[in-house]
């Protein structure tokens, strides 16, 4: 089975405190199409790990391989494009620019990708929004005016518009109520399975673990001391 993500001997520290390693990962990998649930306390190097996977940060030492590409050897512009095209990202909140509408939010993400500009993306965006049960009257409102549940569903559409092979979700359900959380999870899991997307899902909510085939504790992945 091919590896979607492979970390080997990865260390990370901020340049301001070079001796204070936030991450120390000996070896960790996720195979293509796998859905991993990572749980752990906040401050355990969680966001740093996700930033390394998305290429927002580069490792101080070691190899970060995503989809067979070594992120550390890419230039900054190359990494930005790689992220736009291959990695979808969903946060706990602020996934969308609040003052533009759903369609423009998704189109914006689309334009940062390596896309054929001739192709009309509008229809695809609209069918995605319908698939996520966003009523048509809400497509043209600034997303800041929509409910939080709707915003998170639009965020999935936004993250998937460039057909990424890897989707990273950083506590995406933490601000949702029970009902919205279930809607969100089922919509998300259906899509990643359908498109065979590798999912890295971070949460402290263990009740979500039953959606996943693999469950990792952050403390098992990261050998750096936790009290940083």
């Amino acid at each position: 089975m091919t590896m979607a993500i492979q970390l080997t001997d990865v260390h990370f520290s901020y340049p301001e405190a070079p001796d204070n390693f936030i991450l120390n990962i000996n070896s960790w990998s996720v195979s293509a199409g796998e859905h991993v649930f990572i749980h752990g306390p906040s401050g355990g190097g969680k966001s740093t790990l996700l930033n390394l996977l998305s290429g927002m940060l580069t490792a101080t030492s070691g190899k970060v391989n995503v989809l067979g590409e070594r992120l550390g050897t890419m230039g900054a512009r190359q990494r930005d494009r790689f992220r736009a095209n291959h990695i979808g990202y969903i946060f706990q909140q602020f996934n969308l620019i609040p003052y533009i509408d759903a369609i423009d939010n998704i189109r914006l993400a689309y334009q940062f990708g390596n896309n054929d500009r001739q192709y009309s993306i509008a229809d695809e965006i609209k069918s995605l929004l319908s698939a996520f049960h966003i009523p048509e009257i809400d497509w043209y409102k600034p997303v800041g005016q929509l409910s939080f549940g709707q915003q998170q569903r639009i965020a999935i559409a936004r993250a998937l518009i460039n057909k990424p092979q890897v989707l990273i979700a950083d506590e995406p359900t933490s601000s949702l109520d029970q009902n919205n959380r279930d809607n969100f999870m089922s919509a998300l899991m259906t899509l990643v399975s359908k498109h065979n997307i590798t999912l890295v899902f971070v949460s402290h909510d263990m009740s979500l673990a039953n959606y996943f085939g693999r469950i990792d504790a952050l403390s098992d992945i990261n050998a750096a001391r936790e009290e940083n």
Partner: peptide, 8 residues
């Protein structure tokens, strides 16, 4: 957010 969705 703009950076994460790929904005240089």
């Amino acid at each position: 957010l703009l950076r994460v969705i790929g904005a240089p």
